[in-house]
Every structure is written in structure tokens, then in C-alpha cells.
Nucleic acid binder design. Structure first.
Lengths: 145, 145
DNA sequence: CGAATATATATAAGAAAATTAAATATACAA
DNA sequence: TTGTATATTTAATTTTCTTATATATATTCG
């Protein structure tokens, strides 16, 4: 089975972080990477080099606050959402859902319409054959993310 | 209603182009932008500055070929998939579908199960509080885009 | 007729966001 | 002690846009 290419992850880290922290009161960086890896069976992995600058940036933007807690003799930095962070989380999650919905619309062509159009063109001699297109699938039902 | 942020489009242009050309034998650049805009009611727009370099790159990679056709007194560049382009289209679409599945998996927590488990542990005095818990693993639901 | 707009393509500078690389430090296991 | 796990940091490089600019033909409008 092909691995999921990481190219689609681009632009989603902010949303992923906001979402996870909207579900769980506070998390530390390493824990976030683990949560993502575990919940996707290792198919999506966040790199530290990307995650920590995102956390720092979100903090700078006032969306996160952090507190350092000593655990087992070393400091661990927990992040949690601010009020505006919580609002932003809701917004970003909504946007991503809609993005997926629109990608779905883009990726699916109403098959019946296409076949009907091709058939009409074929009958009227305007197309060489009605089989010059792949057969996309019917629209999937609305799905909540 | 908030517009869909374009940040999620990052990394998807290649897949969008391959998908559209897998449905339709040949298209020109401007037509691709129009198709995306129309089929998503203007919510997703591809910029020319991004699209054309992607088309050129895909051609360079041997995934697309182009032919110039004169239409209304000017040249129009139609792109179509090569054989390896067709294979790549199938692969990329499959990857995107799986990406969405895993994002769904990541974004949805079986809250009822978690709350029930935490509550039981809490009642039996095995947990300090019903928060801060790792998440159980669920199989990703199969779904076609 | 000329200006504005639509259609269609091209390309480069700059910005954003990742990838890749490297580093540090404590805890734990062999 | 070495190797691995846990946890954080940061910078160089790469990728992929965004933004800007340009060209050209066709069509519409004043």
C-alpha cells in the first residue's frame, strides 16, 4: 500500500494543533506528534522542525499560551488555547470541512449528466464515441468531518 | 459566511490538475481555472501564477503532453495526460482520499466512549479526573471521494 | 475609434510553510 | 558507557504558493 504523501499536510498544521487543543485542555509538543501518529496509525506524522515553529507562531499570535511544568526532573511545555484560539479553532475546522466538501464536488462529476450529454452528442453525430471519458462516481452524500 | 482559506489548497494543485485531466481528455489552463471555480461556486480558485508553472512542471515530469490549437485566431494550449500521468492521477487521488480519511480520524474523537470510560474509572476511584487521556485507535472508515 | 473587459499564456520576485539537518538535555535500558 | 526514548529548539534549504507584471487577441461599450 502506498504511503500517504505528506504534500497534502501542507497548510494544515495550524488547524491540526488548534483542533487537538480544542479537544484536550493542554498538550505538549511531543504529545501532539504522538497523538497524530497514533490516531492515524502512523500514516500522518508531524515533524518537530515544523511543529514547534507553528506552536511558537500560534503563541505569538495570541492563540496559545504555554506553561512549563516539571515532570520527572525536566521541564515540559504545555500549550493551551486562549479564548481567541478557541474561536480560531472553530473557524479553521469549519473551513477545512468545507474545503474537503468542495474538493469532493470538484472531484466528482455527475455521471448521469455526462453520459446523457455524450449520448446525445453521439446520436447527433457530434462525438466520435461516447467512451472518451472515464466514468466518475456519483456524488457522495454530505459528510461531517 | 467565512471564505474557505486557500492555505488548504497548498499541495493539492498537482492532484487537482491530474484529476480533471483524467476526467476530460484535454483541457487548457484557463479552462482548468474556470472548471475549478465553477464546480466549487467560486470557493476554490486556482491562480494563474501557480497553475501554469504546475502545468509546465507536470509536462517536464512526463505526466502531461500539450498541443497548441488555433482557436479564433490565437493559439490555445491543450494539455492531456500521458500513460504515466494517468497512473499518477489514480495514485494521487487515492492518496488524497486516504489523507481525508485520516484527517477525519484525527478530528473525530469518540467522545461518548471516552467519557464513559473516564466516568467509570472516576467512579471507581481509579482516575484523578476525567481529562488528559490518550486516544484509542479506530480503523479509518472507508470512503470514496 | 479607443478604452475597458474577457480570454489565454507566461514568468519572476517575494512570502510562507514545510523539509532536512543539527543540536541540547534528561531519563532509562542494556 | 552506549544506545534509545523523551522533549525542545533552531537554522539552512527546499517547495509551492502569492503577488506582481507582462503580452496578445477578441469582444463589448461609450
Amino acid at each position: 500500500m502506498e504511503p500517504v504523501s505528506s504534500e497534502f499536510l501542507r497548510g494544515t498544521l495550524k488547524t491540526i494543533v488548534l483542533k487537538l487543543l480544542s479537544e484536550q485542555d493542554k498538550m505538549y509538543g511531543y504529545q501532539i506528534t504522538q497523538a497524530v501518529k497514533e490516531r492515524t496509525h502512523g500514516e500522518l506524522t508531524l515533524t518537530f522542525g515544523a511543529l514547534y515553529p507553528v506552536l511558537h507562531k500560534l503563541e505569538q499570535e495570541g492563540l496559545l499560551i504555554n506553561e512549563s511544568i516539571e515532570v520527572d526532573g525536566r521541564l515540559r511545555k504545555y500549550y493551551s488555547l486562549t479564548d481567541s484560539g478557541t474561536q480560531m479553532a472553530i473557524q479553521k475546522i469549519s473551513e477545512f470541512e468545507r474545503f474537503v466538501d468542495y474538493m469532493q464536488q470538484l472531484f466528482q462529476t455527475p455521471q448521469i449528466w455526462l453520459m446523457a450529454i455524450d449520448l446525445i452528442l453521439y446520436v447527433y453525430g457530434k462525438a466520435n464515441s461516447p467512451t472518451n471519458r472515464p466514468y466518475p462516481q456519483l456524488p457522495a452524500p454530505k459528510r461531517s468531518l
